[in-house]
């Protein structure tokens, strides 16, 4: 009779053999050795058959176990990413500071250095220029500043900015946005660079708006604005429309809000889309002219969408690619 120890020994050997042979690149010699081992003793054959049967049963049960294992892998991967993100999170905060501090481009000529400031979509930041003027950048905005002895120059390369300019009679402050040139001594105003038109809105002081002609130095004044006035300047057709404006609405973005009064939804959507990575899209054309009034919080797109849904007959559906489709709610 065999003892229990012998039996265990045989089982362990059978397991060891099977484990050896499952590796994928088993030499033929090992396979032969396994066959030989099985042949030397009926108990060997039985033990190896048991392990092989067990393995076959386990294989059949596999898919569920595989799925569970993969879910574990995803969870572990998510954990690892979270740890990494804490790290990159810190560095992106640092990067935001760096972006807001400055990128200095050293030029070969003795001309003063140009400095760039920019914000990403959804970001807002305020920078202080060397002369003490403050510039608040709205979402997705990039500006270039060149501070000379006799002039202060800012170029808006994209987006919108609010300027609080420190008065300096000897150094005019000049903002260029496309073909619009804004010239001030000291005042508060905003400039928004658009695709075809630029909007300059004045909160206080006096602002001269001019149009760049073909030559860079050739400028022609198109409007002189005082506090509470706004100009929509369309350089292509040499047109500048001056009108009074609602400062609460025009400057709401400075506090992270958007304010509309009887504004067609199509315009509201265009405006809101400046602030969010996932764009809104009107899916029902009849919604385009729907007048929208109200204040929206720009810090959270979900809140904006909730507000649209609850105040108007709108249903928002997020498409898989992130685009938020706006439908007219079916009334029943």
């Amino acid at each position: 009779m065999m003892t229990m120890n012998e039996r265990l020994d045989i089982d362990e050997q059978a397991v060891a053999w099977v484990a050896k042979l499952l590796g994928g690149k088993t030499p033929d010699a090992d396979k032969r050795a396994y066959t030989d081992w099985q042949a030397t003793d009926a108990r060997h054959a039985e033990a190896s058959r048991d392990v092989e049967d067990l393995l076959a049963s386990l294989d059949a049960a596999g898919e569920e176990a595989l799925e569970a294992e993969m879910v574990r892998e995803i969870e572990a991967y998510a954990e690892e990413r979270k740890r990494r993100r804490v790290f990159t999170g810190i560095s992106s905060i640092a990067a935001a500071f760096i972006a807001a501090v400055m990128v200095t481009i050293t030029m070969w000529s003795p001309a003063p250095d140009a400095q760039y400031y920019q914000t990403n979509v959804g970001e807002r930041t305020t920078v202080t220029l060397e002369d003490g003027s403050h510039v608040q950048l709205n979402t997705g905005t990039r500006i270039k500043t060149v501070m000379m002895d006799d002039e202060r120059h800012v170029t808006i390369e994209g987006g919108e900015a609010f300027f609080d300019v420190t008065r300096d009679e000897d150094r005019p402050f000049i903002v260029t946005a496309g073909k619009s040139e804004v010239r001030v001594l000291g005042t508060q105003f905003s400039v928004r660079l658009g695709a075809s038109s630029n909007v300059i809105s004045v909160l206080s002081g006096l602002v001269s708006v001019a149009q760049h002609q073909n030559g860079d130095s050739d400028v022609k004044e198109v409007a002189l604005l005082t506090a509470g006035q706004q100009v929509v300047h369309v350089p292509a057709i040499n047109r500048a429309v001056v009108e009074d404006f609602d400062a609460n609405a025009a400057f709401a973005w400075r506090a992270g809000k958007a304010f509309y009064r009887d504004t067609p939804l199509a315009d509201v959507v265009t405006d809101l889309n400046r602030y969010f990575a996932d764009p809104l899209e009107i899916a029902d054309s009849k919604l385009a002219s729907l007048p929208v009034s109200g204040t929206f919080n720009l810090n959270n797109q979900d809140v904006v969408i909730d507000a649209l849904e609850s105040a108007f007959s709108i249903v928002a559906v997020k498409r898989v690619d992130g685009v938020v489709l706006l439908y007219a709610r079916q009334e029943d």
Binding site: V15, A16, L22, E46, D50, V51, D53, L54, S57
Partner: peptide, 23 residues
């Protein structure tokens, strides 16, 4: 793998001679 097989064997085949839980 040996460890896995040993544990699975111990758990799923209570009697050494016969598989308790074959399909």
């Amino acid at each position: 793998m040996m460890d896995a097989l040993k544990r699975l064997r111990a758990r799923l085949m209570r009697k050494p001679q016969a598989a308790v839980l074959p399909l």
